[in-house]
Design a protein around this nucleic acid. Sequence first.
DNA 1: CCTAGTGTTTGACGAGCATCAAACTGTTGC
DNA 2: GCAACAGTTTGATGCTCGTCAAACACTAGG
Lengths: 110, 110
Amino acid sequence: MPEDERLPQPATADIDLVTVLHALGDPVRMTLLLSYADGAEHSCAPRDLGLEHLHKSTVSHHMRVLREAGVTTTRVAGRNRFVSLRRTDLDARFPGLLDALLAAAPAASA
Amino acid sequence: MPEDERLPQPATADIDLVTVLHALGDPVRMTLLLSYADGAEHSCAPRDLGLEHLHKSTVSHHMRVLREAGVTTTRVAGRNRFVSLRRTDLDARFPGLLDALLAAAPAASA
DNA sequence: CCTAGTGTTTGACGAGCATCAAACTGTTGC
DNA sequence: GCAACAGTTTGATGCTCGTCAAACACTAGG
C-alpha cells in the first residue's frame, strides 16, 4: 500500500480563471465550495454536504466539474473518495481570490 | 437636460455572488471586464472592445448579462450608451473580490 | 423629413448543462 | 464467494446559453 491515488486534475499552472469562475457560478457547486472551506476532506455522500435533495450521480457530476477546473482534489482510498480544496494551489495561482470568495459567499446568502 | 438615465440594474445589496461568478465565467465577458478595469466609460461598439469577430447583438447580450448581474452600469446619453464598472458597489459588497479577479485575469491569459 | 448611426430586441439554431434513473466498477466484510 | 457499500458512467430529458441575422427603436445631422 504505497500511497493513495488521486483522480486526474489540472496542474497548478494550467488552472484557468474563467473555467474556475464558470465552475463556481452554480449554486450547488458554491455550496460544495463552502463545505470544503474548512480545509478538511469530505466524502461524496450528498447527505454529508447538505444536498440530500440531489441524486448522488448529480453530486458526482458537480464534483467532477470542480476537480477538472482545478478547485478540488480527490484522493481515492478503498471504496471512498475524499475531496478537499486545493487552497495552496489556488492561492499561488490567483492570490487573494479564494479568500475574497469565501468571505463574500456567506455574506451573500445572509 | 437634467441628468442622463441609467439602464435598470440591481441594487448593491441585491448583487448575488453566484450570479456574478456565472456572468464572469465566460471568456467574452471576462474580456469585457478587463476592458472596463480602467474605470473609464466605454461604448458598446465591438471594435472598441477587441470583439470584432462578434456580432453587435451578441455583444449587447453579454453587456446585458453583466449589467443584470450588477457588474456594470450603463449610462444613456443620446444615441450612445456608456458602460463602466460598478467598482465601488462591488468593493462594498464583496471586499477584495474585484481586485483579486483583475489581478488574476491577466496572469491567466499570459 | 430623411437618412445615417448606435444599440436593443426577437427569433432561430446548435451546443452545453443540470438532473434523474439505471447499470456498472471496484471494495469491504461476512 | 457473496452481499452490501461508495461512487462513477451512460443515456435520456428539458432547460439554458452563445451566436447570428433581421427587424426594430431612438437619436443626431443635413
